[in-house]
Design a protein around this nucleic acid. Structure first.
Lengths: 134, 134
DNA sequence: ATGCGTGCAAACGATTTGCAGAGAA
DNA sequence: TTCTCTGCAAATCGTTTGCACGCAT
């Protein structure tokens, strides 16, 4: 008899993608990740990168931000809820936590809404880039 | 002699796009806007919709949010800064204002960042949809 | 009359998917 | 062996662009 269960197998590619994602400090596009892997002697198919990224995102193990035309991914070591402070110039990103998110629920409640999720992205210049444009 | 100046002509399509955008309560994709226009007896080319949307966005007359795979636009009547409370079920959206956004700057400052802009979208269920799923 | 704006369709870039073969369990 | 995962390439999807014509000025 057969067991009906969706299993997830461990493969070289999976680890490679995961590792490359960890190595990349900030957010990277699927394509760029693919380049890094290929260039780094880890021949992983582009489709596989997309599939892994998609899986990881769904599993909540990576953060995703949608930029015009493409999606960027970033390793999310902890499953904790947090937001991002992204440098518009160099793309570097910092994780930031909100002091309190109660006001979100409060405002939503005023409108009769039930909050399911929220997205917050803060864009600006990191210290280094701010210094350059001085 | 000729005058060298980029002029902007008033056309039926421009007005149509602008109007359709105003009528749409929440965020709409370029494609959907095109459908609305076409369906509403305003035969506007899809390319034109994109061009207008792009122009309006650049002129700061519309808000834009990048969602996975597509961009959504929304009329920005006033140049005022505000955020959105979007119903995940029916797509309706409410404008919401933050009680204070100082904490954003404060947190950014802790990381040495200069804040240029920020995006906040809250997703949930509007009163009507919440009632249905009770 | 002049030249910007439009429409159509081809071009594009990012992401997804079908299918046959490779490898994990 | 069995069945998931990978690779490749073709297929999608949203968006952009080249070109010839119409219309606003």
């Amino acid at each position: 008899m057969t067991r009906a269960m969706a299993e997830t197998r461990r493969t070289v590619q999976k680890d490679a993608v995961r590792r490359a994602l960890d190595d990349a400090a900030g957010f990277v596009s699927a394509q760029r990740l693919h380049d890094l892997l290929t260039g780094g002697g880890e021949p992983v198919g582009l489709a596989t990168v997309y599939r892994q990224l998609g899986a990881l995102a769904e599993a909540g193990q990576v953060d995703t931000i949608a930029l015009a035309g493409e999606r960027l991914y970033r390793a999310c070591t902890s499953g904790e809820h947090h937001h991002h402070l992204v440098c518009e110039n160099c793309g570097k990103a910092e994780d930031i936590a909100l002091p309190s998110e109660d006001w979100i629920r409060a405002i939503a409640a005023e409108h009769g809404y039930t909050v399911a999720a929220h997205v917050l992205e803060v864009y600006g210049l990191c210290p280094a880039c701010a210094a350059l444009s001085s």
